[in-house]
Amino acid sequence: MSRLPRLAGVTAAALALGLLATAPAAGGEPSVSDPRIVAHFNFAKGQTPENIALEPDGSADLTFAFARQVAKVTRKGDKRILATLPDVANPDTPVGAAVVTGIARAENGTLYVNYVTGTSKTGIWRIAPDGSAPKQIAKLPRDGFPNGLALDERRGVLYAADSLRGTVWRVPRKGGTPTAWATGAALDPGTGPEASGFGVNGLRFHHNAVWVSNSDAGTLLRIPVRQGGSAGRIETRATGLTGIDDFGFVERHRDTVLAALITDNEVVRVRPNGTHTVVLTEDDGLSNPTSVAVRGRSVYVPSAAYFTQKDPNLLLARVHQRARR
């Protein structure tokens, strides 16, 4: 999620940054085709899909940020609300409301979500597969903004990106006290007149490293997980990604990323060398895309319509490898 002054209209200028010159596509790269909208949502009801996790059957679990809900959407577009986070009196957040942001799914079907309230309810919440009420398992600073979320099943830990505090938190999967796992200038929000105030944002666990985006800096970063579990040196893997939100990795293409650029209404393919190419645009149906999930030959892109305020939706497309010349 990029910072929003309430749910009302905002300008995309908040995250405007210079673009990195993109390189032409090379043979053998994954390409994206056949985009189609499989589900439309109700903006007025707060159905703004912020983040995504995939079910084994290909259904998408989406966080509806301003509705405080988690919804399951099938590949055919059928929708079902899985959980609603508790209402909070007098929320105190930069977006003017309590919002549900990042989501992660465990192999046993348990869902974990970040809930931002500006109160003691800010933190990580667990949604059990049995349909019981969501339960808070970790408190995060009430003046923070936990955004992207990922689970490392092997180590049994969750990582959460705090966009306001420039911190990646680490929390035991079973719950407990959070640890400031990674900090540094590369994760901090910007301070200039064009800055949104959101630094580290999207987060994915990939090949024994935590990858994050920094929205204000327009960067994609990699943080290795050392043998003992501590954070390694922060590596910059790509720059010039204006308004980057969350992202996903293309299978069988090591370290190739599809990233959502929320203010430009684009999804870009980011190569391992850091260059990038636009693969989806608003002409395909994007309306402020927030995140990306990839499985096999399918790519899912939720659009929250935060700035356009038109047609929040879920887009499904095909991803495949180009023939080499």
Rank of each mutant, 00 (worst) to 15 (best):
V171E: 07
S303P: 08
L258N: 08
T117G: 12
G176K: 14
A21D: 13
V73M: 04
D311L: 15
A14Q: 07
L261P: 00
L286F: 03
E282V: 10
T183M: 09
F249T: 02
P49K: 00
V10Y: 15
D188W: 14
D283P: 04
R318V: 06
T117D: 07
G166V: 02
T167V: 12
L280S: 03
R324F: 11
R204G: 12
N51W: 00
G77V: 02
G156I: 01
I37C: 09
G46H: 06
T256K: 12
R75W: 13
G202R: 02
V73R: 03
V299A: 08
P49G: 01
L203V: 07
R3E: 15
A67E: 09
D284F: 03
G176P: 13
E266G: 07
Q321T: 13
L82A: 00
A60G: 00
A323Q: 12
A217V: 06
A304H: 11
G118P: 06
V168N: 07
N114L: 01
L258E: 07
V88A: 06
S132D: 02
R226D: 11
T22H: 15
F66L: 11
L7H: 11
L221Q: 08
G46A: 03
N147I: 00
V171D: 08
F145N: 10
T183N: 09
L15K: 15
A195T: 12
H276T: 00
L164M: 14
A44T: 06
L54C: 04
N288A: 04
F145E: 03
